[in-house]
């Protein structure tokens, strides 16, 4: 049953560009990118209870790092560019995560919120590097001899990276590290008493989360093709938080579904024009009232036996 579900899922994902109209290939890429961010954020929030309102900032760092690398060094292969974007962002995650170790709950949320603002300001003011408000146009990336100029080619890059990162996240959460992280969420003091090195694991969660978001940022630059400080406002961070809460905290499958739901909603409501935020807000409220705990826990209630916290 599981294998069948996985198999048909793979068929749908791989066959998508041939079946769906081009626009939906682009949209699927966006969903995959947001899913990576959501997983990254969920590793932080869902597993160690550290809420971040600054992930748009991490996304921006990854996106600008990848874009600048593509522009300055066009010969660097794409995987290396994405890895670099992830690493640069992870380093920022470390720099932010260590001082934030002392912060909890709301204070951490506020510190990360402020971090998001500072990143946007930094992009604006480092205009010799980032072209500030003029925005940065990202040239088509290359893999060996191929330039990724079509939505389909970019889609395959994005879903490949997303698949790798989903697998990696599953592995992280199922190992000793994952159990340690979950223990941190349940009770920091109990975890510490059971020999979990609290500070190390919390920092690790921050770094991994930033890495995921940084890689997603690199893909964002690739798929959207244009970056500007306006792309990474605080509402984007809030969207990411909405994704993991709607999807379900502490669930990787939930993160992917949350990203899919929020991205699709955002897109399909664009035609509502002035009514868009009204409808979007109403859907958020209703889903939280009737599905507390998000999609993942609702699924668990429907199919208790299949409910693995993937």
């Amino acid at each position: 049953m599981r294998a069948a579900a996985l198999g048909s899922g793979a068929v749908v994902v791989l066959g998508w560009p041939w079946a769906a109209p081009r626009y939906f290939v682009f949209l699927a890429s966006l969903i995959a990118i947001n899913a990576i961010v959501a997983i990254g954020l969920n590793l932080l929030t869902g597993y160690t209870n550290q809420l971040s309102f600054g992930h748009a900032g991490f996304l921006a760092i990854g996106a600008y790092a990848a874009a600048l690398l593509t522009i300055q060094a066009p010969l660097v292969p794409l995987p290396a560019t994405l890895l670099a974007a992830g690493l640069v962002t992870a380093a920022m995650g470390l720099a932010l995560g260590v001082p934030c170790l002392r912060l909890e709950g709301l204070y951490l949320a506020m510190a990360t919120l402020a971090f998001g603002f500072v990143v946007v300001e930094a992009i604006l003011n480092l205009d010799w590097l980032t072209r500030g408000n003029d925005g940065l146009r990202v040239p088509a990336a290359r893999i060996g001899p191929w330039a990724l100029t079509t939505d389909t080619s970019r889609y395959y890059v994005v879903v490949t990276v997303a698949a790798l990162l989903i697998l990696a996240a599953r592995n992280i959460t199922r190992t000793r590290t994952g159990r340690a992280l979950l223990a941190v969420r349940e009770s920091e003091i109990a975890a510490q008493a059971s020999g979990v090195h609290l500070a190390a694991y919390k920092t690790l969660a921050f770094v991994v989360s930033a890495f995921y978001t940084g890689v997603a940022g690199g893909l964002f630059a690739l798929v959207v093709g244009f970056l500007s400080p306006d792309s990474f406002d605080v509402f984007l961070s809030v969207d990411f938080v909405a994704m993991i809460i709607v999807g379900g905290l502490g669930s990787i499958l939930g993160s992917v579904m949350g990203a899919a739901v929020i991205t699709t909603l955002n897109d399909s409501l664009a035609g509502f024009q002035s009514y868009r935020p009204l409808v979007f807000g109403a859907i958020l409220i209703v889903s939280m009232l009737f599905m507390p705990g998000g999609i993942a826990s609702a699924l668990q209630k429907i199919q208790p036996r299949q409910g693995d916290r993937a």
């Binding site: 966006l30 244009f226 970056l227 306006d230 664009a270 868009r276």
Partner: peptide, 17 residues
């Protein structure tokens, strides 16, 4: 008309659509 709320990525998505 589609709403982009002044976000470049939304305007890219809307224009493609």
């Amino acid at each position: 008309y589609y709403d982009d709320g002044y976000r470049p990525q939304d305007s890219v998505a809307n224009t493609k659509k």
